[in-house]
Design a protein around this nucleic acid. Structure first.
Lengths: 178, 178
DNA sequence: GCAGAATACTTAGAAAATCGAACAAAAAAA
DNA sequence: TTTTTTTGTTCGATTTTCTAAGTATTCTGC
C-alpha cells in the first residue's frame, strides 16, 4: 500500500461512477439517450449554444453533435436558429417542450448532493468546496503537448459557465429568426 | 444567486468533465474505444473479473460487455477462462499484451492528481481526502425506489476495490484452464 | 434425486453514437 | 480580390448499446 492520497483517488472514482450511473438513469427516465440528454442539460445551463461549443464542451466532434441535434430537433426538443450576425453560426435552442422535459426530470443525485451539503456545518461546507476546487485546479490544468497522439481535444476546456443547476435559464429573449 | 454550495457543484462538474475528456483521450492513444479501455483498466485494478461484475461496475448490460470483451479478445488483449468451480462463470483476464497496453498508456491526469496532492501539506491532503469521501457518501447512497422507470441499475453500486492505480495486478495465478 | 427457479453468459437484430473525410457557405486575412 | 479560416452539414463505416430470446449450470424445495 502506498501513500494515503490513493484514498482520494478511490473516493473520486466512486463519485464519478455514481454520477455516470446517474446520468444514464436520468436520460432513461427522460426517454433520451445519455448524449441527447447531456445536450439538453447543457442548453439548460448555458442557454442557446452553437454546435461547435457543444462539441468542445462534450469532447465530441461537430459531426456527432449535428447528428444528436438532428435527433433532438426531430422531437421538437430543440430548434436551430441561424445567427443573423454571423451567418455561419447556428444557435441550438431549447424549445418549451425541451425545457419541460428538462424540468420534469428531477436529478435525484444532484438533489441529494445539495441536501447533503446543506445539512453540514458551514465550515464543513466551505472545506468541501475548497477541496473540490483544489482538486479541479490540480486535475483540470491545460496540458500542452501529447506527442503520441494527434489530438487537440483539450484535455480540460476550463470554461464552465457560472450558473448551472437543473434550472433552465430563460432563452426566450433570442433572435426571433426562423 | 443561491447559496454557496452551488460552487461545489460547479467544481464537481469541471472535475467530471476533465476526467471524461481524459478517458477519451487516453483510450485513443491506446488505440481503443473508451468502453474497451475502461474494461482494460478495470481488469488492471481488480484482476480477473467475470462479465456480470464488469457490467455492474460499468453500468452496462451483460450483452454489451460480451460484445466489448469479444473485441478485446479478438485483439488478444484479454482472454476468457471458464471458471472450473462454477462452470457458468467466465473469467475475463488481461493477457500480457493487454497488460502492456495498459502499462504503456500513462494516465497523465491521474499522474497530475497524485503529484498535485503530494505537493500539498499533510493536513491539506487529509482535508481533501475527507472532503471527497464525504461527497462520495452523500452522492453514492443507494437509492431504493424510482417510481418512474423500470430500472434496477443500481444508481451507485458501492463496491469499488481497495487497490487501483494504473498498476496492473498480477493475474498470472489463475486457473490455467483453456 | 429431481423439477423448477435463479444465475451467468451468449447470440441475434436493431437503434444510436461516433468518427473521419469531403463539402459548402460565410467571414476574416492577405 | 484571392486565400485561408471558421462553422456546419452530409456521407459512409465502425462501434456501442440495448432488448429479447436462447443455452448452460447451479441452487432450492420437496
Amino acid at each position: 500500500m502506498q501513500n494515503k492520497t490513493h484514498l482520494a483517488l478511490i473516493a473520486l472514482r466512486q463519485i464519478i461512477k455514481a454520477t455516470e450511473a446517474n446520468a444514464r438513469s436520468l436520460s432513461r427516465s427522460a426517454g433520451l439517450t445519455p448524449s441527447q440528454f447531456a445536450i439538453l442539460r447543457l442548453l439548460g445551463r448555458n442557454g442557446d449554444t452553437i454546435p461547435s461549443v457543444i462539441a468542445r464542451e462534450m469532447s465530441l466532434t461537430q459531426a456527432t453533435v449535428t447528428a444528436l441535434v438532428d435527433k433532438l430537433a426531430s422531437r421538437a426538443l430543440v430548434e436551430r436558429r441561424r445567427d443573423m450576425a454571423d451567418k455561419r453560426r447556428v444557435l441550438v435552442c431549447l424549445t418549451p417542450l425541451g425545457g419541460e422535459v428538462l424540468g420534469t426530470t428531477p436529478d435525484s443525485l444532484q438533489e441529494r448532493f445539495f441536501v447533503g451539503l446543506m445539512k453540514l456545518q458551514d465550515w464543513e461546507q466551505s472545506s468541501i468546496i475548497s477541496a473540490l476546487e483544489r482538486v479541479r485546479d490540480i486535475i483540470a490544468t491545460e496540458v500542452r503537448d501529447v506527442v503520441t497522439t494527434p489530438m487537440r481535444e483539450t484535455v480540460s476546456g476550463m470554461d464552465v459557465p457560472p450558473m448551472l443547476d437543473m434550472g433552465l435559464s430563460d432563452h426566450s429573449h433570442l433572435a426571433p429568426e426562423e
